[in-house]
């Protein structure tokens, strides 16, 4: 039985800089996996390779036993991987519910002609998409904010709205890029609860996070990158005790 997501020997360079070098790891179905490392370690680049925003120079990425490393981003979403962004990327001038509906896009069909003629199936599809969007808003705790413009939401709410948009796409794997970034302690606490609830829905989670207490509590498997290379991998306890990881985060003591 192969893993849900298999990253194998992935390398990506920008000009002379090798951002990700020969990185391999697995994400098992149903798990919460953390990708950590100091700034510039290549975490977000790795995410962008998985989601098709970048093309790997070498290596393969397989999702549910399908090669996805040559697929375009929207196709990868359709295949079942949804994401959030490090610097929240919402549709600022649109309402919260419209933002979530973006996630429904790849699961619905009606086109321009359907919009002009409005056949009954199109009306039904719209209604079902709206119901689902409202449901996802409630799921992340934004019930009352459906009609608010994304730009008017508090920062923590914007992060949760992004998660709702990702969940609306019926993903099997959700990739969260620093979900707790800019959140206060209480919001982070709620986020850990939310991650648990997402997992209960049977959705696998891969996340980048700098908040170590969140990573250690929420993740059962951690992959550590430094200078684009994987330096360690394992359950939280072993990562915390790993001398190379400690060295990467704290630096070596000069003797």
């Amino acid at each position: 039985m192969s893993a849900l997501l298999e990253v194998r020997g992935v390398t990506k360079s920008f000009g002379g800089l090798t951002a990700v070098s020969d990185v391999s790891f697995d994400v098992e179905a149903g798990s919460v996996v953390g990708l950590i490392g100091p700034n510039g370690a290549g975490k977000t680049t790795t995410f962008n390779l998985i989601t098709g925003n970048y093309r790997a120079d070498r290596g393969t990425i397989r999702f549910e036993d399908r090669a996805i490393d040559r697929m375009r981003t929207h196709k990868i979403v359709q295949a079942g991987i949804a994401r959030t962004f490090q610097n929240v990327r919402l549709f600022q001038q649109l309402s919260a519910v419209e933002n979530v509906l973006a996630g429904r896009h790849c699961r619905t069909k009606s086109g321009a002609l359907g919009a002009l003629l409005r056949p009954p199936w199109q009306v039904r599809e719209e209604r079902e998409a709206a119901a689902r969007a409202v449901e996802e808003l409630a799921f992340v705790g934004l019930s009352g904010h459906a009609m608010e413009l994304a730009k008017n939401l508090a920062y923590g709410d914007q992060r949760r709205l992004e998660i709702a948009r990702a969940l609306a796409a019926d993903p099997r794997l959700v990739i969260l890029d620093e979900p707790a970034g800019g959140m206060n302690e209480q919001e982070t606490e709620e986020l850990i609860g939310l991650i648990g609830r997402i997992r209960k829905r049977g959705i696998t989670i891969l996340l980048i996070e700098h908040d170590m207490s969140l990573v250690m509590r929420a993740c059962e498997h951690i992959v550590v990158l430094e200078y684009g290379e994987k330096i360690a991998e394992g359950p939280p306890a072993s990562i915390q005790a790993n001398p190379r990881v400690i060295e990467a985060y704290l630096g070596t003591e000069e003797v």
């Binding site: 925003n53 990327r89 549709f91 649109l94 973006a102 896009h105 009606s110 948009r165 796409a169």
Partner: peptide, 28 residues
Amino acid sequence: RLEQSRFGRALNYLREDPVAAEGSGVNT
């Protein structure tokens, strides 16, 4: 009718943030 539809919304997503639109599953 067009602007109040999946099609019209897709165009708006494109205007607001093409990267986020593509990343949400819209064939930009």
